[in-house]
Write a protein that binds this DNA or RNA. Structure first.
Lengths: 210, 210, 210, 210
DNA sequence: ACCTGCGGGACCTCCCGTTGAT
DNA sequence: ATCAACGGGAGGTCCCGCAGGT
């Protein structure tokens, strides 16, 4: 019993240390010896818990993923209207990205590891569902097709991750979640003073350099 | 003369091969021997041109950066209105990201290498200037402050990079630049059917989980 | 327990093999792969015990130094008169130099490695002390100042090292310690038949080519 | 003609630079690129003059050797008595060792390069001859056999080299040639106050640790 | 004839991820 | 859960050709 408790604590501290390293240095840039040193566990001990580097990375991914989906689950349980839920979902995600090493590590690992499923697969279906319901309730402009808004959401979350990652060393620690909130206000109502101009603002695909 | 020509060709093929590897595997995940093999140049030859991995990475960054700024320079020379220029700028950037290994590699390296200036420093000032002029001409809604729109643009370009990167292995080769175009159409005119609802869609910062 | 024993044996055989190589080829001329091969330990195993070449060299130096000072300690514990102790000290040192790879390697490494303290610092103070006592007891000629005799001892030990080193490959395996003994007999009593001639035998410093 | 002059100058500056490096870092520790940089000649140029590192080392050895034998030749032409010539010979050698990079490099290379003839082969015959003549003239004590004195001379020159080499970085730049002079004064007349004690000062060979 | 730019591999030191013996 | 050892590359350097210009 006591042994198992100690083992669980070791495992947790290994995952936590690994998350920090994977987040900062990526998969290839992280060495197991660094992780074991940060966690205060011998390299042999690390091997006992995770028999390979890939396995450790998967544990970190799992940790981050579950933290993120826990947030999602809490949010979609709220009684808010669907569109607000979508916005809240991305903003909360951004907050997790800012504050949780494992979440950032998970996103980075999902990108860098070959064959891993993209992280957006976890929440995109939810987002699409919310948007469908928003459309059904007439909250969306007719031109705003759910699929396009979902793509927008993906782009914004990507941007939030970059903002959070860069902000760590910058002098202006602007919070990614707040930036994202301001962007949503903008996006929801639109940028143009005159909506009629929109058509000629976007270059036609394949048109080359105007 | 002949020598210099051959040297220049070798150098170029090294940079090209390195760009592909850095793009795919990142800085730490790329080995010089792989690069030299891909380029068909011996490791000694690589060392002659680039005395360290960091130097090679800098050359790749420079290559990608100059390709990108060349595109920017061409765009801002057009007589289009500023807002359209901004949209075109991001869309053309996305196209470069799709098509040019070196540009993708440059963006990735700029993130992964410590101490490197963020790539957005190159085009953000231009974007801010365009937005200021758009505001002066009354093209922006009063609520759309230039700084916020610039932040939006950064997020969208980040998202375009991720889209382009993921698309490489996916089954749906959706072009990042086209996706970006559709997103801009959405964003310019807004998402909400009723603009009055915007205020209550975005959670107040610091409010926690609503 | 058994593990630690095996580890100690591995370590020792590494140090022994390294001593032979450092002695023969010097610091820069010795490669770790050669050492690991000679010791019958894989290169990775070597790295486990000594994380760098410098660290291995230090272990070899320490090994040789301790062997030498052990000899010194045994000698100065004898009841012999001081001058005889000094002679015995250099002769025993010469014997160590002949027979012990680590001692030779230590002396060579102490010369070749930048920043390392010269080996003579270890025994010169002892020699000076012996000479001072010899002078106090009236065993030295008045012209033989302790400092000068100490310098002579240093020269002779240097010469013994060279003799031992060259002898390894020569056809005349003359033992350095025996040669040194004969030299001391000579030096103690002097070379000249007529001591009065000494003054005009040595060129005055700064006189150039007489 | 002009070409050849320039070539000779290049060659000389290469040898000079190489001497400094070989002296400081030894054969294995010296890289051709460093030498070429110090000499201000391209690496290809170096290869033109010396087609291999060994060849360059031989040129340096030759340079140092000829400088040393020139000194010897000048000395043995003097009308001094033989013993004084021997002393002068070693002292002048020490002076060369102090002042001439190539001489120091030559001595080091002669030790480090496998198969090279020992440098003492160059002057030992001369020394032996001088000692024989000194004995014939009755200048030596009967116990001072020429062969033993020659061995002493070799030891002293070895010691002078070490003194010169170590002195470079020390705080007391004591000149090797002056130290050697004082040692000779000592050695010529002897160290002991009472010559009768000599027999019991030197341990019998093979006696082990007294 | 003299020198250089360019390129080729072999190797070196160091580190990494992993595995048995205990 | 550890200690000890392994083998495979990593990045980097080295010594050396060889085609070509001056």
């Amino acid at each position: 019993m006591v042994k198992q408790e100690r083992a669980a604590r070791s495992r947790r501290s290994l995952v936590r240390a690994a998350a920090a390293h994977f987040d900062r240095d990526g998969y290839a840039g992280t060495s197991l010896s660094q992780v074991s040193k940060s966690a205060g566990i011998s390299l042999g001990g690390l091997t006992f818990h995770f028999s390979s580097k890939a396995e450790l990375a998967e544990a970190v991914e799992e940790e981050g993923r579950s933290a993120a989906v826990a947030t999602l689950d809490r949010l979609i349980a709220s009684p808010d209207p669907p569109l607000r839920q979508l916005v809240g979902l991305t903003v909360e995600l951004a907050r997790q990205i800012e504050e949780n090493d494992a979440v950032r590590a998970m996103m980075r690992l999902a990108r860098e590891r070959p064959g891993a499923p993209p992280w957006s697969a976890e929440w995109l279906p939810v987002a699409r569902d919310l948007l469908q319901r928003a459309q059904d309730k007439g909250q969306l402009r007719s031109a705003a097709r759910p699929e396009a808004v979902a793509a927008l959401a993906v782009h914004l979350v990507s941007g939030a991750e970059m903002t959070a990652r860069r902000g760590a060393g910058g002098e202006a620690p602007e919070r990614a979640s707040e930036v994202l909130g301001r962007i949503w206000e903008l996006v929801l109502t639109g940028i143009l003073a005159d909506r009629e101009d929109a058509a000629e603002m976007v270059p036609r695909p394949g048109a080359g350099l105007s």
